[in-house]
Amino acid sequence: MVTVLYPADGASIGRYPIASQMTAGTAAGFGEFAPLGNPQLPTAGVDWAATLTHAHVGAPAQAVRRPVVLYSPGGGDPRTLGTYIAEELASRGYVVVAIDHPGDAAAVEFPITTSYRHKLVRTTEFRANPWTQPDVYRTLIAARLADTRFVMDQLELLARGHNPDAAGHPIPRHLPQALDLARVGMYGHSAGGTAAAEAAYDDRRIRAVVNMEGYLDYPPDQRGRPGPLFPVVQHGLDRPMLLLGTDGFRDANIDRSWSAMLAHPGQRTRRRQIDDAMHWVFSDFAAMVPQLQADGLMTAEGRDQMVGAIDPGRSVPAVRSDVLRFFERTLPGE
């Protein structure tokens, strides 16, 4: 499952419905399973299906060739939890393809059932932090890399006029013409950042990458020993990469693997840091969690553990700006 956000034809956009952030099925699964990975979140009192986006479903695209940017969310997160960055990029002239990873994300809602999937909603297989289970973590990243290759292949078919929609829904007008697959980037958060970095190493169709606080080493097989580095770190990347982190989540694994990435000759990788922040500031939790705390549904300590003390009026523009400016330099528009 993917969401594609793109600059729309403003003359007709008002005739198309505003998109919700999550479908009802995804929201129900998210409300049940997201607190397992983030116990700071409330288990009741939130209507996760109520949030609207700034996008309109099915609106015609502007008939202009645009750079394409893929997005992979954090472990356990649905693709829609990266809406605040995706909308910013789309509003600035990019086609953003947000990818769900079924079995990984808290919940994924499909448009149809199949012979091997009898329900529309698939919930996560995770009941513990995959980083503590090396075999599970390897499978998680391998699945995300396979998902990314599949989506890239489908985008090539779409650009040639094929319709990859599983339910046969019509493609928005001019969308195939808007895809410039010679200018493809990828960004991701946490496990999605790891997958984005390694996907760029594996697939030369990806020309620039942003890793938002994803480890670039595997979990150690033996406690007390460092885990092996990903191939992208071992061999380097001959295309631009931004390592975007926080002061609150920074640890020995981040420093070791990111420093090894930065040490490669050629200086194609850069690092930036958001201060007074924590790991989920790179997701829509950056704006949601402070509101939940203000409404008494989370503690101040829980807020700090998820997004840090930084005000969303600072964190959201800062992250948007860092990601946008990187892609403006590496995947310039028309």
Rank of each mutant, 00 (worst) to 15 (best):
D135V: 04
D311V: 09
A277S: 15
L237H: 02
D255M: 09
Y94I: 06
D217T: 06
F327I: 14
E32W: 02
G188L: 05
H279W: 06
R320F: 08
L331A: 13
V69P: 04
L297K: 11
R173G: 00
R314W: 05
S72T: 15
H235L: 11
L145T: 00
T299A: 01
T246L: 08
F327S: 11
G333S: 13
A11L: 12
M241K: 00
P17H: 07
W131E: 05
G224L: 01
E109C: 01
R270L: 04
Y201L: 03
T53K: 09
G192N: 10
G82S: 13
M1K: 10
E213A: 14
V289H: 02
D9H: 05
T83F: 09
T26P: 04
L292S: 01
E156I: 00
V307K: 03
V46K: 02
N38I: 14
R122P: 02
R225L: 10
R92T: 04
T330E: 15
D104H: 07
A98E: 12
Y187C: 06
T132L: 10
P73L: 06
T132K: 08
L244I: 07
D165W: 05
Q21T: 15
R223N: 02
H56G: 13
A44Q: 14
A208R: 01
I310G: 02
A8T: 07
A146S: 11
M298V: 09
V97C: 06
W258P: 03
T80R: 10
L179A: 10
P312H: 01
